[in-house]
Simulated assay, not measured.
Amino acid sequence: MLRTFALLGLLAAMPAAAVAQSTPAGAQQAESGKPPQRIRSITLTGNQTCPKSSDPDAEIVVCARVGEPYRIPKELRDDKPIPAQNQSWVNRTAVADDAGRRAGGLPDTCSPVGSGGQTGCAKMRAEQYAAEKAEAKRQERLIP
């Protein structure tokens, strides 16, 4: 008999507890199944805070940060050539292959040895010119 009264008391208290709980505005919108009227996308920089929506049922605010706040400035970045011991094995193999081709006097190597060695001299000069231009541009960027 005591169990019956306890069970009836719990059942009577449940609707009151459900009414006492408040649902957030976003949950009400999700329960209704209707899409929001507006989605506002905001890009934040520095230490800006994301603004709150004035009407959560009609508007969703999406915030995203741009850039890295503690990024190293371009002037201080190290963009020098990567040392050979820190390069991938593919690059190291390509350098070794090129050295072997030059030593053998194969075509496109600009080597005085072999029949096709002279054909790569123009290619080699063009590569040197491009490397010199890239280095000059890098040095120019370092000057404030």
Rank of each mutant, 00 (worst) to 15 (best):
L7W: 05
L11N: 03
L11P: 02
A13M: 11
M14T: 14
P15K: 09
A16P: 01
Q21P: 00
A27H: 08
A27D: 15
Q29C: 14
A30H: 13
E31W: 09
G33N: 09
K34L: 14
P35I: 12
P36M: 05
Q37L: 14
I39P: 04
S41F: 07
S41C: 06
T45I: 15
T45D: 03
N47T: 01
Q48T: 08
P51I: 00
P51L: 01
S53R: 02
S54Y: 05
D55V: 07
D55Q: 14
P56S: 15
A58R: 11
V66P: 00
V66N: 13
G67L: 15
G67I: 06
I72R: 10
I72W: 07
D79R: 14
I82K: 12
P83A: 11
Q85S: 10
Q85W: 14
Q87I: 01
S88L: 07
V95G: 02
D97I: 08
D98Q: 14
A99R: 07
R102F: 11
R102P: 00
A103Q: 02
A103M: 06
G105W: 02
P107K: 06
D108H: 10
S111A: 09
P112S: 06
G114T: 05
G117H: 02
G117M: 02
G117R: 00
C121V: 05
A122S: 09
A122H: 06
K123C: 03
R125H: 04
